[in-house]
Amino acid sequence: MNTKVISLVSIGAHPTSGRARRAEQDARAVELGLQLAGDNLQVLHAGDSQEPALRAYLGMGLEQLHVLEQPAGADALGVLGDYLRDAGAELVLTGSQAETGEGSGMLPFLLAEQLGWPLVVGLAEVESISNGVAQVLQALPRGQRRRLKVRLPLLATVDNAAPKPRQSAFGPARRGVLAARQVEIVEDELFTGAELQPAKPRPKRLKVIKAKSGADRMKAATAKASGGGGQVLKDVSPQAGAEAILKLLIEEGVVR
C-alpha cells in the first residue's frame, strides 16, 4: 500500500504502578499502522526525545521514531498539525485518550478540526484503501461494527477494539533511532494555567437487579442499547433533514 500512514504516540503510565510505559491504545495505533504500511509506517511523538519509554515503541520493530522536541506543558496541537500537513499524511492513527498529562481525549478532535479532516472514532479495522477512499470498520459498543467509507486524508482513533499490539523486543528497541526535530514551542496556557486536582471517583449507581431468572439477565445483558426517544426521518428532502438535525442540536445545546 502506498498510503502514507502516521501513528501518533504518547508516553503511557502503568495503571497500578504509574511507571512510564508505551501507552496501551497508542501501541495499538502503531500495531494497526504496522499491519497497514509495514516498514513505511511513520511514528510521531511530540515531547521529550530522551524519554526511555519511547523505546518500547521502537521495540515493536520500528527503525526510527520521529520526535517533535517539546518541553512538558507545551501545546502539541499546533506542531502536530503542521507536521502532518507538511508530511503529506493520508491516514493518521492515534489512541483515544492519553494515559498521562491532561488525558482529555480531545487531541484527535482538535487536530481533525485544525486540519479539516474527517475523524473516525474507535477504528477497528481498515478493510481497503483505493482511489483516496478508505473502507473501514468502526467499533461500536457490544461488539457491533459499522462499515464506513471515508475519503482520505483521515484521522482515526483506536481503542481496545483495534488489534492487540505486538511484543516490544529489547534488540530493536535498543537499535532504533529517536529522531528529534526542533519545533516552535507554544505554551499550552489552558493546561499550564489551570489548577489541577486529582479526579474524584464518580459515585457508583447502586445496581438493582430486576431480572428474576437467568434468561432475563441474559436478555438484559445482550439487549441492544436503545436511546428510547428520538425520531426516524424517512423520505425527507436533504434540506428538511438538515433542518431537523440542526434543530435538535440547538435544543440539546450542542450548537449555539
Partner: peptide
C-alpha cells in the same frame, strides 16, 4: 524474546508487568 519479540501466549504480558510493576502478575507494587 530479545530480537523477535515472539514470547508466546502470556509471555509478553508477564514481561511487561515485570518491567512496569516488578512482579509478573502486574499487581500494584
Amino acid at each position: 524474546t530479545l530480537e523477535k519479540g515472539a514470547t508466546p501466549n502470556k509471555g509478553a504480558e508477564v514481561l511487561d508487568n515485570l518491567i512496569a510493576t516488578d512482579n509478573p502478575g502486574g499487581f500494584a507494587p
